[in-house]
Computed example of a mutant assay.
Amino acid sequence: MKRPSIYVAAVLLTIILVLLPPDNYAWLGKFDLGSSPPTTKPAESGDSSKKNEGTSIPAVQQMKSLPSKKISGTTYYPLTNLVQSKLIQAKSREVDGIVELTVNQENYQLVRNVPVYMRNGIYHPLTGGNMRWEEKDFWLPESFLEGVFQPSSDSSDAKSYAQNKEKISKMSADEMANYLSFVQTPIKGSKMKKSDSSIPGAARTYRNGIHEGVDFYTPTIGVPVTKNTPVYSLAEGVIVRVDHDYKEMTTPEREKILAAATNNNGQTPQDLLDRVRGRTVWIQHSNGLLARYIHLSRTEPKLRVGDKIKAGDYIGNVGNSGTSDGAKGNNEGVHLHLDLFLFGEWFWKQYPTLEEKYKILFRMFGQYR
């Protein structure tokens, strides 16, 4: 006697399915009715996830629509226009010749007329022209910009850079000494002796600045140095700069540079300082360490930018290039000046006392008594 009620229920269900629009069938998914899977609903014209697809202009294409000019055969773009077009974020200091960029969450730094740039604390060669200052603006080479505008799949490098900088900034002098203990001395048999004028932070009144690195002079390292003394790599790394074609300044040229430096509010502009460093080799070592080997009299002719190098490899000879004696063409004042950066910062930046600096240097190079 209950069979008619079953028929009535079936009829009612059929009527409901016919009258309801297809979008309301979703509740049937709870039951296995053997139906085929639903098709995806097409995006509507107002769907925000699809609205801008295919309409954005690549950054390189936008860049090439901006005003540019050829300088020595290389295409350059002015920093002001790049910032105004919102292609990059930038901080620039004309007086120091430094530009800091943020592009695609990556951090860059360039110095006027210097053939090297820093990306996330690691240094690389500028192979397509140096950044320049002309017409009251910084001008960036096209090849460099094309590289930085390449899409980045993640920001791991930028995150690591921030983490490394924070880690380094919190190191005690003992921890820093251990961190840098992997290096070897750049001059065979040399050790460091206490000499306050030869370590970082010492005054350099002739250019209204400070000493930024470590000096290896005959009286302070326990071995004699001449222009025939070889200089060796501190550790394995990659060559990012080698000045095979360095041309020594004349005394008037050097004095003109120093005069400009002393008028810079107590800080030597980095591009001018680069000139008085003379002939240099820059090597990006491991652990974020960049070493600049400065005032060389010669460089190993076989060295090329991008070459991998091992600890103890010969890179050049001690000299006095870039100094007042170098400008005079004599053999006085011969020494190696060594600059050391960690992820773009001076290794000694957070250590105000001589005791802390000596502790690190003696651990790195040994102590000469």
Rank of each mutant, 00 (worst) to 15 (best):
R298K: 14
E248P: 12
W27R: 03
V214N: 04
S49W: 09
V95W: 06
T226Q: 01
S153L: 15
H337V: 00
I309K: 09
P125C: 11
Y108D: 01
R277V: 00
Y206K: 06
S198L: 05
L13H: 03
N81G: 13
V334T: 09
N208I: 00
L336G: 03
E106H: 14
K159R: 11
T229Q: 01
S156V: 14
T102I: 12
S321M: 02
Q89M: 06
I57V: 15
V8K: 08
M171H: 10
V276L: 10
T250A: 11
K308N: 15
S152L: 09
T251G: 02
R207C: 10
T80D: 12
G319V: 01
L82S: 07
E146G: 08
V318Q: 02
T220S: 12
S65P: 01
P78T: 07
P21L: 13
H337C: 03
V223M: 02
L17H: 11
T299H: 05
Q150E: 12
R241N: 14
P4W: 13
G73E: 11
I16V: 14
W282Y: 15
P21W: 13
L272T: 00
D32T: 09
N264G: 10
E356L: 07
Y117K: 04
T229S: 12
G237H: 08
N330W: 06
W346T: 05
T127H: 05
L361Q: 04
K30S: 10
P78G: 09
A10R: 07
I57M: 09
M131R: 01
G128V: 01
R3V: 15
G29K: 07
D325F: 11
P352S: 09
S160P: 00
Q350M: 09
I122G: 02
I221W: 00
A260F: 06
M249R: 08
I98E: 07
W139I: 02
P269G: 03
Q270R: 13
A173D: 11
T55V: 12
V242D: 06
Q89W: 03
Q89I: 04
V103L: 08
Y314R: 12
Y117C: 06
G97Q: 04
D96F: 11
R3C: 07
A261T: 04
Q163V: 09
I360Q: 01
P67C: 03
N178T: 13
R304D: 13
Y123L: 08
K191M: 11
L17C: 15
G288V: 02
L101V: 09
P42H: 06
R369K: 15
T250D: 10
I257Q: 03
K247L: 11
P78Q: 07
S198E: 11
W346M: 05
L12V: 12
K302A: 15
S195V: 08
L101I: 07
M364K: 07
K227T: 10
